[in-house]
Amino acid sequence: MVENDFVPAGYTAQSERGKVTWRAPSNIALVKYWGKRENQIPANPSLSFTLDACNTTTSLSYEKRNGKRTDFSFELFFEGKAKDDFKPKIELFFKRTKHYLPFLKDYHFKIETSNSFPHSSGIASSASGMAALSLCLMDLEKQLDPDMGMDFMLQKASFLARLGSGSACRSIQGNLIQWGAHSGIPGSSDQYGIQYPFRVHKVFKNYHDTILLVDKGKKQVSSTMGHNLMHGHPFADNRFKQAHENISRLKPVFADGNLKEFINIVESEALTLHAMMMTSEPYFMLMKPNTLEIIHKIWEFRRESNSNLCFTLDAGANVHVLYPEFEKEKVHQFIKNELIVFCEKEQYICDRIGFGAKRLKSVSDNLYG
């Protein structure tokens, strides 16, 4: 699929008003996306686990507008309260997607959104938020084009979500999602995420992710600024090459359930992400002292217990502790005994691998039963 494939030829049905609701999960990248080109195109491919408990629920109420329409019309509510400071991001998203959703100016929208995780918890909500909104808009387009297949709907939702937030394209489906063109991954694309097409050992299908909230404050550097710092970065080309190589290295790992090699690749990816930020211009140190304390504790515990837990990081101080289902009790006890003391107010979130977004029942529901 290419961009023009997502431009509708026309609509065969109408919808005057209605309401749809979707819940979309966050995701955690195993191979990191860091650096992008124009139009939200990634500089390197990435691979992520879709999560479950950390999600965004978005309801989209829509009503047909009358008269000449030259602008977008929408109101936005976050957890029940008007959120005008979010509106510029939605406006930009609508501008980027209007070519692919030509009905956008025909309706007034009421967007109501909420997160399952606490506000300012340090968990990025742009991926789950843009994924949920994109699915709501595609739900409306499916009503206008009843012949649209579900596979195409989900693929286009991923394409649209990417235009709002790059990693959001990995929050439509689950449980293991590839985004970015890679010569060894058939069907992979810079335009949207795809479900990983190769064999995945059962040990990776019920993995856990406990998120240790080291720092719940506002991010020191925005994702957009961070990605832009890769332009002209002295190590950028080698980093992009490394990402391609790590995705190739993970193919036999996922097939065979090789947890030791999984740990090596995932932790290296996390530290490389932060190394790129520490060596950019300007440079940033997004890990906190407690981030490093947790990492050393994890290494010590793994060495002494022969456990298979590991860590990964996003572009911040929080630590994602990854571990297989069969070690859940042992790792939970370790986290409670040794790690939560390094979290802000001892707060953490227990999550696990999920299987993608879900449409929720609403009063106007007549499409999916």
Score class of each variant (00 low, 15 high):
residue 1 M to T: 12
residue 2 V to H: 13
residue 3 E to A: 15
residue 6 F to E: 02
residue 6 F to Y: 15
residue 10 G to I: 02
residue 12 T to F: 08
residue 17 R to F: 13
residue 17 R to Q: 15
residue 17 R to G: 04
residue 18 G to D: 02
residue 19 K to I: 13
residue 24 A to L: 02
residue 24 A to D: 01
residue 25 P to S: 02
residue 25 P to V: 00
residue 26 S to D: 02
residue 26 S to K: 03
residue 31 V to I: 15
residue 31 V to A: 07
residue 32 K to V: 06
residue 34 W to H: 11
residue 39 N to S: 09
residue 41 I to G: 04
residue 41 I to L: 14
residue 43 A to S: 15
residue 49 F to D: 02
residue 50 T to A: 15
residue 50 T to I: 11
residue 57 T to L: 09
residue 62 Y to C: 04
residue 62 Y to D: 05
residue 63 E to P: 00
residue 64 K to Y: 04
residue 66 N to S: 14
residue 70 T to K: 13
residue 75 E to K: 10
residue 81 K to P: 03
residue 81 K to I: 12
residue 86 F to P: 00
residue 91 E to Q: 13
residue 93 F to N: 05
residue 96 R to V: 07
residue 97 T to G: 03
residue 98 K to F: 08
residue 98 K to W: 05
residue 105 K to V: 01
residue 108 H to T: 12
residue 108 H to M: 04
residue 110 K to A: 10
residue 116 S to T: 15
residue 119 H to F: 08
residue 119 H to N: 14
residue 121 S to N: 03
residue 124 A to R: 01
residue 130 M to D: 03
residue 132 A to G: 01
residue 135 L to C: 09
residue 138 M to T: 04
residue 138 M to G: 04
residue 142 K to P: 03
residue 142 K to N: 10
residue 142 K to Q: 14
residue 146 P to Y: 12
residue 149 G to I: 06
residue 156 K to E: 06
residue 159 F to S: 03
residue 161 A to E: 08
residue 164 G to F: 12
residue 164 G to C: 12
residue 166 G to S: 12
residue 167 S to P: 10
residue 169 C to F: 08
residue 171 S to M: 06
residue 174 G to L: 01
residue 174 G to P: 02
residue 179 W to I: 08
residue 186 P to K: 10
residue 190 D to A: 08
residue 204 F to D: 06
residue 211 I to A: 00
residue 223 S to G: 13
residue 231 H to R: 12
residue 235 F to Q: 13
residue 236 A to I: 02
residue 238 N to R: 14
residue 238 N to I: 10
residue 244 H to S: 10
residue 245 E to W: 04
residue 247 I to G: 03
residue 251 K to E: 11
residue 255 A to N: 12
residue 260 K to R: 10
residue 272 T to P: 01
residue 272 T to F: 07
residue 272 T to E: 11
residue 273 L to T: 04
residue 274 H to Q: 07
residue 279 T to R: 11
residue 286 L to A: 00
residue 286 L to Y: 09
residue 288 K to E: 14
residue 290 N to Y: 04
residue 293 E to P: 01
residue 301 F to H: 09
residue 302 R to I: 02
residue 316 G to E: 05
residue 316 G to P: 05
residue 317 A to Y: 01
residue 320 H to G: 00
residue 326 F to G: 03
residue 331 V to W: 00
residue 333 Q to Y: 05
residue 337 N to A: 14
residue 342 F to K: 01
residue 349 I to Q: 06
residue 351 D to N: 10
residue 353 I to D: 03
residue 354 G to A: 07
residue 360 L to M: 12
residue 364 S to M: 11
residue 365 D to H: 11
residue 366 N to F: 10
residue 369 G to T: 08
